[in-house]
Computed example of a mutant assay.
Amino acid sequence: MRTACRSLAVLLALAGGACTGDLGRPRPNLWSDTIAPQAGFWSATFRGEAASYFRMTDDEEQLRDRAWRLVMPAHERNLFERQVSDLAHARILPVAVQSNAASDYFRGLTGGSYASQASRYNRLAEDANADRLLVTPFRGNAARVVAADRVRMRTVEGSPLVPPEKADPAMARVVENEGLILWVCERVGFRIESYRYALANLVVEMPSREAIKAERSIMALEAEAGPLCKLPLIGAFGGAGRAQEPAEKAPKPPVVYKG
Results as ranks from 00 to 15, higher is better:
R132A: 12
E157S: 13
S113T: 15
R66W: 02
I92Q: 08
G108M: 14
Y105C: 12
Y114V: 09
A39N: 04
D104T: 15
A96K: 13
S103E: 15
Q62D: 12
E126M: 08
D65P: 00
F106P: 03
L124Q: 06
M153V: 05
Y114E: 08
R91S: 12
G111S: 15
G48V: 06
Y105Q: 11
R132I: 00
A115K: 10
D58Y: 09
A148M: 03
L161Y: 10
L70G: 00
V97T: 14
W42G: 00
T155I: 03
S99E: 14
R69I: 10
A101G: 10
A147F: 00
A115T: 12
A118E: 15
T110F: 08
S113L: 10
V97G: 02
R150P: 02
S43C: 12
H75Q: 12
A102D: 13
R139C: 12
G40A: 03
E60P: 01
A102Q: 11
S85V: 06
R107K: 15
E60D: 01
E126K: 09
S52C: 05
V84D: 00
T136Y: 11
R66P: 00
Y53W: 11
V156P: 05
A118H: 08
V146C: 01
Q83E: 09
Q117K: 07
D127N: 10
N78E: 07
F106A: 11
G140T: 04
A142E: 04
Q117R: 14
A125S: 13
A102V: 15
T155Y: 04
L124D: 02
A130V: 11
T110I: 13
R123K: 09
D58M: 02
F46G: 01
R91I: 04
S85G: 10
Q117W: 05
V71Y: 01
F138W: 07
N141M: 14
R154L: 13
Y105E: 12
N78V: 06
E49M: 02
A51F: 03
S119Q: 10
W42K: 11
R150T: 02
A88P: 12
S85H: 03
R132K: 09
R139W: 02
V135P: 05
F80N: 09
G48Q: 11
W42M: 04
R77G: 03
D127F: 06
A148W: 01
Y105R: 06
V151D: 03
Q38K: 00
R132Q: 07
R69N: 00
G158L: 08
I92H: 11
A101N: 15
